[in-house]
Design a protein around this nucleic acid. Structure first.
Length: 423
RNA sequence: GUGAACGUAGCUCAGUUGGUAGAGCACUGGGUUGUGGCCCCAGCGGUCGCGGGUUCAAGUCCCGUCGUUCACCCCA
């Protein structure tokens, strides 16, 4: 026997039994996206590597150590999409969407790839649902996007989420704060972990990601970002919070919330669930007013979020909610004798072409075996064809839920009441 | 990339101080010849993750490796 092959580390198969809940989550989320005026976009699974190095940022963990990058046969460097925003921004530019009425509101559902060590709720291939709105710098749009994500979670019955928000400032005020923070960190160099010393030089804001006790202690006394926002950013931040209050959304301001992509400006936010353990983030996003120009487009503001399908599923299953299961066939056809099989096969075709979901036996099972299958399949009806039915052109229709049955001509079976007609 | 625990039938697991593998569920058949979901009986199914080592003998001890889980880290 050949050596067995298993799915790559950190990946998984989405089995038939897993599909219904997943499809339900995606469909409900899409319904909410449409309600808020977002249209679907699909971008390629891989992109030129420089889209991410320029868009997401050279100093981020994603770019530095988590990308699936490869050279194609033409010698071009390609990367499996690690996040959804940069590709959608690329498509916005490439298709001249700045000529459309702004803002342009797009959503996606796509697999993402990151070379990380897997654990619960963290995979090398996972799926995100996300939205991006380009072309408006209105703080109401930030508040709406945050509210939209809350609406998605509400639609799915996901509760117990905590929302944290922050402002990263803009290109006017952030460099000033960065410099102040860098100076401060330099003064406390000996108290920082080695990685943070590096971060302090390259991108001081990244030190907020660190969980080391020493670094956290230093940052407790560090100059705070909110105190260094320019008047325009401060006002924007206030108005976002006002917009959240209007929608009745509770949040906590967290000035240490720094997300993993360098493109964020002004608003950042994150929803966390206590049901998820260490990987508590269910979804998050923010504003990225410099991203489009960074990848070669016209200066265009934008705001959006991404939320993890697997994390939603995990939180949902741990919350003990009632979740959808797979749909059974409406009818299971039973051939009592070998001679009846031909008629049953014909009947299956005829019913299916009228839109009825039909299942039947392919394993030459006994009648009892077929009845057993019929019961387990969850079908409402068993249609039984035996010697007598064969002789007079009828079929015995057994209602498996009621335990009742009657004979009727085969042509009349399609007239049975729902759920018979459920496809 | 670092640390810890775990890795036995498709699934969930048991396996005593090392003596060449078991249960439940699932699957197949049967329980007197035209009928399911319950019950009973039988059957199918395992290179004990993989590779080395110690031993007369290893699922059981040791080392390595791969994988899973948890934590660090990072994020969805």
């Amino acid at each position: 026997m050949a050596e067995p092959v298993s799915a790559p580390k950190g990946t998984y198969d989405i089995l038939p039994a897993d599909q219904p809940v997943r499809r339900w989550v995606i469909a409900r989320a899409e319904a909410v996206f449409h309600r808020y005026g977002y249209a679907r976009i699909d971008t390629p699974t891989f992109e030129e590597t420089r889209l991410f190095t320029r868009g997401v940022g050279e100093s981020t963990d994603i770019v530095r150590k988590e990308m699936y990058t490869f050279e194609d046969l033409g010698g071009r460097s390609m990367t499996l999409r690690p996040e959804g925003t940069a590709p959608v921004a690329r498509a916005y530019v490439e298709h001249g969407m700045h000529t459309l009425p702004q803002p342009v509101k797009l959503y996606y559902h796509s697999p993402m790839f990151r070379y990380e060590s897997p654990q619960s709720g963290r995979y090398r291939q996972h799926h995100q649902l996300g939205v991006e709105a380009f072309g408006s710098d209105s703080p109401e749009l930030d508040a709406e996007v945050i509210g939209l994500l809350a609406a998605v979670y509400a639609e799915l019955g996901l509760s117990g989420l905590e929302l944290r928000i922050n402002s990263m400032g803009c290109r006017e005020c952030r460099p000033g704060y960065s410099a102040v923070l860098r100076t401060f960190l330099a003064e406390h160099d000996d108290e920082l972990c080695p990685e943070c010393r590096e971060r302090a030089r390259l991108n001081p804001l990244r030190t907020y990601d660190c969980k080391a006790a020493g670094c956290k202690a230093v940052l407790q006394t560090a100059p705070r970002l909110p105190d260094h926002l320019c008047p325009a950013c401060a006002e924007h931040h206030d108005r976002v919070q006002g917009g959240l209050r209007v929608q009745g959304i509770e949040f906590t301001a967290d000035h240490t919330l720094v997300r993993g992509m360098d493109y964020y400006t002004r608003t950042t936010f994150e929803y966390q669930s206590s049901l998820l353990g260490a990987q508590s983030g269910v979804g998050g996003g923010g504003r990225y007013d410099d991203l489009v120009s960074a990848i070669g487009g016209p200066p265009t503001p934008g705001v959006g979020f991404g939320t993890g399908v697997e994390r939603i599923l995990l939180a949902l299953s741990r919350s003990g909610a009632d979740l959808p299961e797979s749909r059974p066939p409406a009818v299971y056809l039973v051939a009592q004798t070998a001679e009846a099989r031909g008629t049953v096969f014909e009947l299956a075709h005829s019913l299916r072409s009228r839109g009825v979901a039909v299942e039947l036996d392919y394993m030459a099972r006994s009648m009892k075996g077929q009845m057993k299958q019929a019961g387990r399949s969850g079908a409402r009806y068993a249609f039984i064809v035996g010697e007598q039915e064969l002789a007079d052109g009828t079929v015995t229709v057994r209602d498996l839920a009621e335990g009742t049955e009657r004979r009727m001509p085969r042509e009349e079976t399609v007239g049975l009441p729902a759920p018979f007609q459920v496809a």
